[in-house]
Structures are given as C-alpha cells and as structure tokens.
Design a protein around this nucleic acid. Sequence first.
RNA 1: GCCCGCUUAGCUCAGCGGUUAGAGCAUCUGGCUGUUAACCAGAGGGUCGCAGGUUCGAAUCCUGCAGCGGGCGCCA
Length: 493
Amino acid sequence: MASNISGKDTIRLIERLTKGPFLYLCSMSGGPPPTIAEIYAKPPVNQVIQISGWVRTRRTTRAISFVELQDGSTLKSLQIVMSHQQIPRERIECELHTGAAITVQGLLRATPDRPQPFEIEAQAFSLHGAVDPETYPLQKKAHSLEFLREITHLRPRTRTFQAIFRIRSGVSFAIHQYLQSQGFVYVHTPILTPSDCEGAGQLFQVTTLPLAAVPKHPDGRVAYEKDFFGQPAYLTVSGQLEGELLAMGLTRIYTFGPTFRAEPSHTPRHLAEFWMIEPEMAFYDLTLTMDLAEDFLRYLIRYALEHFPEELTFLTERYEPRLIDELQTASSQPFMRLSYTEAIEILKKSGRAFQFPTEWGSDLQAEHERYLVEEYASGRPIIVYNYPQAIKAFYMRQNEDGKTVASFDVLFPRIGEVIGGSQREERYDRLLRRMEELGMPLLPYQAYLDTRRYGTAPHSGFGLGLERLLLFLTGMTNVRDVIPFFRAAGQMG
RNA sequence: GCCCGCUUAGCUCAGCGGUUAGAGCAUCUGGCUGUUAACCAGAGGGUCGCAGGUUCGAAUCCUGCAGCGGGCGCCA
C-alpha cells in the first residue's frame, strides 16, 4: 500500500533498486508526482522517476508485461515495462487490471524505434486501489456514450471524457481571458432570486417550508412570510437583469455561472442546470455587440484549435469527421449576417416546403435555421438580427420601424443557436409602455426601471450557452456529454 | 408537453413465429523473448427490460408499463 511508504522508504527502495544516483522527483510528502502530460512535455530520460495513474490496458507475454498507464492529464498514455524477473508475474496478473490505481518507480528510457517515444522500465510498483475485473464496467475498448451516461461517476476514466472536460476547462479559462483583456469585470450575480425577472422559462422554487404541511392563510394562500426569505424564492434563470444593473456602473461586465430552468425539454440541447456567460456592456449598440459576439466566439474556437489539437483530432476521428473543418471554417471566415427580414425572404425563395410557416412575423424554427446555416451559408455561422418585436422579450430595444427590436441570434452548424442577445431598451417611457402592453407587474422591476430613471445609457448584452458551444467544439451531439454531471428533466446523471 | 424508435451475455450487436438463442470484445484457464485495443487454444457466462395476451409453439406478433435514445415545441 502506498500509504505505508514514507518518503525516506521510497528513496531507500529506489536507491537499492537502481544502485546509482537518481533524480528524486516526488513522494507523498515532497511535492506532487509528475503527471503524464508533464513527463511528455519534458521527458526525464535515463532518470528514475515515480509516476502515478490508472491502468488502461495490460498485455502479458512469457517474460514481460506491458502496462499502459493514463492519468487524464493528456490523451497519451505511458507504457510501463515490467520484467517478470523484477516483479512476479502472478502479482502483475492479480493486481493490474484495467482501472487499477498504481504508483510505479522506474527508469524512463527513450525508445526511438518503437511507436512510443519512451517508456518506463519498472523497478517496483504499489497498488493504491484494485479493481475487480468481473464487476468493473469499463473495458479497454470503446463504450457507447449512452452507456457511459449511466455511470457518470466513472466517465472521467475514459479518454473521451478526459478530452471533453479538459476542453471545457480550457475554454472556460479562455472566456475569462478574452473578456478580461477587453476590460470586462467579472461579476457574481445571485443564484437565489425573488422572482421570474425575465420570463426565460419555468422556475425551480426554493423553500424551507415543510412540503407535507405547507402553512397557509385562511384563504388558501401559502404563508410565505414563514418561508426562509419571507417571500417566494427561486433559482435564477438568467443573471441578465442584475448584469444590466452592474453594467450601468461598471460599464463592461460579464457573468459566468450556472443557470436553472425547470422546462421539461426532452432534447439533446437542453439541461435543467447549465452554464451561461452573459456579457453586458454600457454604450454598446447592436452592431458593436454583434461584432463582440463574433470576435469572442472566433477567439474561443481558435483557442481550442491551438490548445487542444490532440483532443480535437481524437474527437474528429472518433465522433465527428467534420469537426476540425468546421472549427477552422468558423474561426477563419467572418460570420454571415442577415436581418430577420432578409432571412425570411431567403426562406421564401428557397423553394423548400417547410413544415412551419415562413411568413414575416413567425419565429424561425429549427428547420429554418438549419437551412440557413447548412445550405444557404454552406456551414458558415450566421447572425440573424432585428427580429419582430412580438416574438422577443420585453427589454429589447425598439427599432424605429415600429415592428422590430434590436436583437440577434448566433446560429452554428450542427447545433443551432449558441447566443441570443440584444440592445436593451434604455428609454424609460418606451420600456414602461412595453411592459404595460404585456400586462407585466411593475413592482418587482423598480430597481430595473430605476436605471432608466437615473443616468440611463444605451447598453447591450448577450447570453452564451457553454454546453451548446462545447457541442460545437467537441463534436458531441448531446449536452449531457459535455458537463460532468447532468441535470435534466427526470434525470440526475 | 406531442410524435417516433430501441431494450437479447459485463460491453457492442446479430437473430424478427418453428430444434437446446449466437458472434466479437471482456472475464477465467493454459500457451507465447517486446507487446501496441497484442496474438493462439480452451472454458464459464442469458428467466431475450417488466407485466399481461394471441398461438400447438413467442426473443420474434399484440396491449400496457418502465428505462433509454431521437424528432418537434420552449430556449442557451
């Protein structure tokens, strides 16, 4: 057991086994052991090292066993060579099954004439956690994504999910990097909110009231004054309204956090808990905002291409043959821009028999978006802007034509909408009139309206769905496969 | 929420009214002087999702339920 090996013991063991000077790289007490990615980045050739990880495969011949070790730091694995003279074959066959966690001590030797650049000649290994091969669900061969969704706790052991989660991490970092470099302030908007401030979807209610015996008034209303906050509380469906308040003081802000919608959407593109990035900028009009959204997305795609070439090659070969081509197209060519009115004209002239109407005023359906992106634009991303007011949210800025609002959607091939955004209505009278037209209660929006009463300014923003973007970046087709643990209607994976 | 499809060994699947339900991989046993998802030989492993029904006979046809997947709507 590794926990029984002290640092001194390890040094003594290795000294005894190697009878010579060596570089003492790590022990449990002397710093973290190197990851396989670090070994590949700077191979300590001809040095004795310790390396830890999980067994991916083992091949045994008469005199030697080969163990492929992986640790999720890279797609690559490290081959460990175990001579049966050095380590008894029985022990290897008993302890080293796919999935077992081990630490190996051995000499890193260059192997220029073999498929892998180097390997480790093991002198000793310790087993941290054994695996019962009869019950361990994962094998060295590929599994279906559907099967892996049933074992989300073990998915991180597979190279596919290691690649996806590394890309998710890198892209999250790049999101901060890009926005920070553009002068944006990262703000934390609340997850618990008093009401549905956007109408973006069904809310999850949060309460400490006992569900078996909810306190009520004589007239049957729930006695919310006895609830935790003294009023109803919900999980946020969007940080936008708070984001607007903050942008009206900090000029450029963004949120990046989880969002919750209790919409029973049974599709591969919806989650009940998903991550959204919501930039909000004072003194930005619609055009500046579309420019920002396009530059931002192209930066993130380029970032993925530059930082995760091996992962993207793996995902392209394994899951989506068009992946790298699509990423290169989207990052190298400008997005196509169409007004909603132009888009409708194009659909009408297409000669296609669409299932849904293509009249001005009707919303663009999935089939319309797919035609526009995949056929009309030949796979280039498209920005559609200036949608009819009637099909968009109350806060979007009214255009001078009296029919449309300054809104936009970014549509990607294969996945559809990744961004929805707009210039916000900053004119108090216009906003108030629109809210009254829609019969909205004004009381919960006093803070929001205050920003229009005091020093109002033109401002804009958008929401980027992280999981949707990751579908595009990884070639996955189901958002459940780009988040470690998914929450969707009827499912907690 | 509506519509469609799938569910057979640990995994991926074939079988679609007619003997005792199959294959590859995995597992186990044995073999192999360096393997690359190693290879060779042998073995074990199944109430064919669950509950009913039709039939001389059901994995196969029908009904219901469940789980999963896909399409649509809503959206990110």
